[in-house]
Nucleic acid binder design. Structure first.
Length: 608
RNA sequence: CGGGGUGUAGCGCAGCUUGGUUAGCGCGCAUGCUUUGGGAGCAUGAGGUCGGCGGUUCAAAUCCGCCCACCCCGACCA
């Protein structure tokens, strides 16, 4: 995608700390083309056939991006501008939080990844290639190895810590399934940061600083968001939070409490179990259930609710069969299972496994009298009675089964997913589930990389200790898409001011009319003098075309120079999000815009 | 990597079942005139290896085989 731009590409609205605007710098920086007649903004009337979700569809239709291969996109001028605006917010907040920007390579040598053990662990998602001398390289899906190598060879004293470095650049991950445009691309722009501290406490401070900065970044970007407890996955580490932007198209489900601030990815959200069901104390009896294999089938056949059943799932774990028991109305959660099992080398039985272990009868497995390497049950089943489960005999189930009397499990663990309406583990409030897009994640890594990669420092007492690390990511291009998912209507995008491709869209209708044309130009120039980004629609198109394109592009403010201007010299200021329209003269319009710009500037961190 | 689907002009699609002359439509594009507060009208025009390769046939966008690309549904990632 787009590489780092120089200052010319930067989008400074709201006060020229970064040397923008024409004042003072002799105009050496030429502003990019903002007249629509010559700007590269290829809008489309029809949605591209391959776009499923709003953000993908609109980004293509409005001329912000194009696809070049599956999961790989080009950002056109408007798209590039939004990305640069997001990056600017990220930079401001990262710098204010004490992080320093670096630029790291995307090509990374195999040796570095061997040191951390991830060359073999990362799998096909890391794109691998060889150079002309047949040396192995990977395209960086993330940069822990490179940064750790950099720091270990250049930092050796406690006096240099803490250190927090970040970069904004391209990542490549050969996703098994790229989809939804920039929401899950293979090549994407990410801000990734890494902190190095002397001890745990320092790491927690760095982590908190990043956590807080992330909140500010997403708020300033115009998103509503939620931070949730998260799994640490391939990156590793102990504590982690994901920053989620609620959206229907989100690929993650998050559980949050209505009553308190508990929130977690459902992959690890926990919940209070209800009291287990009780039986009547009668002995278990065999019931004939011909050809009834699934919970639904047996449940409707016997007229018993699925919560009365014990679902017995067979997993192959490190090549050994393991029985996993969950209540019939619940799903086993593979992420939780991975933690419990302590390995990621497991899978639900497939056809071959059933053949290989013929003593397990598919559809009729049950915990009573079962020969398995291990039996793991969800905690909800401890003490449950009067349950129904497979009888380990073709076409038979057992009813009236009591845990403790008829069977037990080797371990009772939290292995099922929370769902809507479950009880909060902290406050006993009600849990809700919502879909979200993961736009950022922060990890407390600890010694995960510093230990194996020998990233040590000499402490005050002369002892050599491993640095305690944290790692922090934001999907910049994904964030752009997430913003659109939260801000669009049937006609187009509705950009929050802080990231919008421009502040103002000037629409002179009947552009060939000299008075309107010169008024529009005057407004355009006055805006440019203040360093604002504006787009002037100087095309000789009909009003309908201009309005439709403007709606699609979604610039927050629109100045229509039309009839009103002929009548009494007024320009109509329209607000894209609200549809609000007000006629005013050019000076008042400039005043209003200045207010909007000032408000935006107030959100920026104050540099000390 | 499994399952399903699609590839025909820049974009969106029809044609394919039942092979048959110059392969169509809408949008967009070019030129001219008339238009211009919500995707204008008329006229003229340009633009296609029908995803690729091979096969069947007198004849293939159409039938067969292989390959490629892309999209959708499932295995935890910014």
């Amino acid at each position: 995608m787009v590489r780092q731009g120089g200052p010319a590409a930067g989008a400074a609205r709201g006060g020229g700390e970064d040397g923008r605007g024409d004042g003072g710098n002799g105009g050496v920086v030429r502003r990019s083309q903002m007249k629509q007649s010559s700007a590269f903004i290829p809008t489309l009337k029809d949605s591209p056939a391959d776009a499923e979700v709003a953000s993908h569809r609109l980004l293509v239709r409005a001329g912000f991006m194009r696809r070049v291969a599956s999961g790989i996109y080009e950002l056109l001028p408007l798209g590039a501008r939004v990305v640069r605006n997001i990056e600017r917010i990220v930079r401001e907040e990262m710098n204010a939080a004490g992080a320093q920007e670096v630029i790291l390579p995307i090509m990374q040598p195999r040796e570095l990844w061997e040191e951390s053990g991830r060359w073999s662990k990362y799998g096909p998602e890391m794109m691998r290639l060889k150079d002309r001398a047949d040396r192995d390289f990977g395209l960086g899906p993330t940069h822990e190895e490179v940064i750790t190598d950099l720091v270990r060879s250049n930092v050796s004293s406690w006096r240099d810590l803490p250190l927090n470095l970040y970069q904004i650049g391209d990542k490549f991950r050969d996703e098994m399934r790229p989809r939804f445009g920039l929401l899950r691309g293979r090549e994407f722009i990410m801000k990734d940061g890494y902190s190095f501290d002397r001890d745990e406490e320092g790491m927690r401070r760095s982590y908190q600083a990043m956590y807080d900065a992330y909140g500010r970044i997403f708020t300033r970007s115009g998103c509503t968001w939620r931070a949730v407890e998260a799994d640490t996955g391939l990156i590793g580490g102990d504590v982690s939070h994901e920053f989620m932007v609620p959206a229907a198209v989100g690929e993650d489900d998050i559980a949050y409490c209505e009553g308190c601030d508990y929130a977690a990815n459902v992959t690890l959200a926990t919940f209070k179990r209800a009291e287990p069901l009780r039986g009547e104390g009668k002995a278990a009896e065999k019931v004939h259930t011909p050809e009834k294999r699934t919970i639904e089938e047996v449940s409707s056949f016997l007229g018993l609710g699925p919560d009365r059943f014990i679902k017995c799932l067979m997993f192959l774990v490190e090549d050994k069969p393991v029985a996993v028991l969950v209540p019939g109305d619940r799903e086993a959660n593979e992420t939780k299972l991975e933690r419990v099992l302590g390995t990621d080398e497991f899978r639900l039985f497939i056809e071959d496994d059933w053949k290989r272990f013929p003593s397990y009868l598919q559809g009729f497995v049950g915990p009573v009298g079962l020969q398995a390497a291990e039996v793991i049950a969800d905690v909800a089943l401890a003490g449950a009675g009067g349950m129904v489960c497979g009888a380990n005999e073709e076409d038979y189930h057992l009813a009236g089964v009591d845990e403790g009397r008829d069977f037990t499990a080797g371990r009772f663990e939290d292995i099922t997913s929370a769902r809507e309406g479950d009880v909060c583990p902290r406050c006993s409030g009600t849990l809700r589930i919502e879909a979200g897009i993961e736009v950022g994640q922060v990890f407390q890594l600890g010694l995960k990389y510093s230990e194996p990669m020998r990233c040590y420092y000499d402490d005050e007492d002369g002892v050599s200790r491993p640095m305690v690390m944290g790692t922090y990511g934001i999907g910049v291009t994904r964030l752009m898409s997430a913003i659109i998912e939260q801000h669009h209507d049937e006609r187009g995008m509705l950009w929050p001011l802080a990231v919008a491709p421009a502040l103002l869209h000037i629409l002179p209708l009947n552009y060939e009319r000299e008075e309107r044309r010169s008024a529009a130009r005057e407004l355009y120039e006055r805006c440019q003098e203040r360093g604002w980004e504006v787009l002037l629609d100087d095309r000789e198109e009909s009003a309908g075309v201009k309005f439709a394109d403007a709606d699609l592009i979604g610039i927050p403010y629109r100045a229509v120079v039309g009839k009103g201007y002929d009548e009494d010299g007024t320009i109509e200021l329209q607000v894209r999000t609200t549809g609000e329209k007000n006629k005013m003269d050019m000076d008042s319009l400039m005043g209003l815009l200045q207010q909007a710009v000032d408000t935006l500037a107030d959100e920026r961190p104050h540099v000390s």
